[in-house]
């Protein structure tokens, strides 16, 4: 797996499982870096199936949501699949308010996601 600062990526049976280094995703420079590290997994390292595990994430801004949406589009255009997991209730509420629950596939935990990828 490539060296990264904002995310930690590991392989689970051909699926790339990503966890986040920051519990609060608000710093704009870090969000740019996070986006680039995610894009690189698709564009430079040819990964196609992803689980983004949010268990460490306590807060994220709308700028971070924007980056996740860009990533979802990138994965889709490369015929990949993306599932979000382990989202705590406060963060899920943000997805629900903005109706992003309709855009993203969301599962309770990694095992649920890996079972369908």
């Amino acid at each position: 797996m490539p060296e990264t600062k904002r995310i930690k990526a590991s392989d689970s049976g051909g699926v790339t499982v990503v966890t986040f280094a920051d519990s609060k995703i608000i710093d704009e420079d870090e969000i740019q870096e996070l986006g680039q590290e995610l894009y690189d997994l698709v564009e430079r390292h040819d990964h196609r199936k992803f689980v983004l595990n949010f268990s460490h994430v306590e807060f994220l801004s709308s700028a971070a949501l924007g980056k996740l949406i860009s990533f979802e589009k990138k994965v889709s255009t490369h015929d990949g699949e993306l599932i979000l997991t382990n989202i705590r209730p406060e963060i899920y509420e943000v997805f629900a308010i903005t109706k992003l629950t309709k855009l993203f596939q969301i599962k309770d935990d990694e095992a649920d996601a890996l079972a369908v990828l």
Binding site: S62, L65, S70, K73, V94, T98, K99, L100, L103
Partner: peptide, 12 residues
């Protein structure tokens, strides 16, 4: 607009 990368701040 659901897939737009911005425009969620005011709603939140």
């Amino acid at each position: 607009h659901l897939e737009a990368c911005g425009g969620r701040g005011l709603m939140l």
